[in-house]
Design a protein around this nucleic acid. Structure first.
Lengths: 236, 236
DNA sequence: CAGAATCCCATTCGATACTG
DNA sequence: CAGTATCGAATGGGATTCTG
């Protein structure tokens, strides 16, 4: 009886550290770190830089304060992110991925690439600004992109990013003060109209005529850049 | 009141279909498909071919019959796997990944590769035979492997596989009757001793002297093949 | 606004027992 | 062997409240 109780208690303690699977497999260990509901989506939202509690809440429709708090604690304990106090006068607290946390991007991309091939995937749900930017980096045709270079400013629902296309890679960062002038600027209140252009291959003029999406600057370059993106073929 | 109740009920119904995140992001959708506890590990166990209920239970220490049943249902509904009746006289039921299910391997690999870089990863826990084989395919140095070709038979705790190294790739399948004669054979009751050789870089002779691991056949080729594998560098 | 603390119900889990 | 049935316990997560 005693023994059984101790076993149960230690099992409980292990669970608190996130030890569910007794398995040396790296994939199983990954699931102990980021396999809880919401965890990986929080990591995704941090992938383009530090964010505040309320930013995260706003980007993750449906998450509660409690759950977000719990997950941030868990991810911090796992070494995936750090909690950092901004220097005064901002004095806000932000959450930022560790160096190793940032290395999770390929895994996130592979999962997304795989799921996008499901016949059941519905690309018309809402998409956070960060997700949109990451999806571009995931779905770009690297080979074709080598032939192009561009500096692109994005404003998605007020969140601003600067993307630099060069050498077949798309580097993305949050917009900052010293940013160079972009070749063109994409402005849209929500992701969907832009998705219809890059993945739905709807003509840019048509979507712009609806009034939500605007592209200013080198429109011709923009069209050639947008042609670089495509969803993977559906399977089954 | 009425409205609230309906909202709750529809939320419940959605949850039953696995709609947790209201998010077009492919990663979020992937998590709806394979993000439940155990789901991705079940997929991993099926990655090298169809298995039975009891095989899966044996390979996933700690999973209960109920949870395994639930997950198999969910994964079948998601289109990740199929339940198939073997023709008589075997007449057993097996679970097998769909074509699209098999495409999840890169995502599983990226997760494993990432998690293996955590300082907290403990590679001395038990490892299922399938995990061991998949980890080899994940951690091989493709560039260096191009210089070698080999046919290798594995017997890990009674589960037998045939691996073919060629063109920098490691193809792995369960052993079958018409298999060609291997260049060498690796036999071990559990994964650990073999892990110590390929990832711990412990001398093969030393590990074999302990008596658990045996390598028969072209021992020299074996040593050169084993040198192709390495864990990614720890981070932080 | 950022988050901790509490409450509480629904779901989930795992153990055990049972069945064709 | 391949699950199903049942049940108590643990957990999860939403709502609300409180604090700095």
């Amino acid at each position: 009886m005693k023994l059984q109780k101790e076993t149960k208690e230690s099992a409980k303690a292990e669970r608190a550290h996130g030890v569910w699977y007794d398995d040396a497999c790296g994939t199983a260990f990954a699931l102990e770190l980021i396999g809880e509901r919401w965890s990986l989506l929080i990591v995704r939202e941090l992938m383009l830089g530090a964010r505040r509690f309320s930013d995260l809440r706003a980007s993750l429709p449906g998450i509660s304060a409690k759950v977000l708090t719990d997950r941030l604690e868990g991810l911090e304990a796992a070494g995936v992110l750090l909690r950092r106090k901004l220097p005064p006068p901002a004095a806000a607290q932000v959450y930022e991925l560790t160096e190793w946390g940032y290395l999770a991007e390929p895994a996130i991309q592979e999962l997304g690439r795989w799921a996008a091939r499901s016949p059941a995937h519905d690309p018309r749900l809402p998409l956070s600004p960060v997700s949109l930017m990451l999806s571009l980096r995931t779905m770009i045709d690297h080979a074709a992109a080598r032939a192009l270079a561009a500096t692109i400013a994005f404003d998605v629902g007020g969140e601003r990013f600067l993307a630099r296309l060069a050498g077949g890679e798309l580097a993305i960062a949050r917009a900052a003060d010293g940013d160079p002038a972009p070749d063109f600027t994409v402005t849209t209140p929500v992701a969907l109209p832009f998705l219809r252009v890059v993945y739905g291959k709807q003509p840019l003029g048509e979507v712009m005529a609806e009034g939500e999406l605007t592209v200013t600057g080198d429109r011709d370059l923009a069209e050639r850049v947008f042609a670089l993106f495509a969803l993977p073929p559906k399977c089954g």
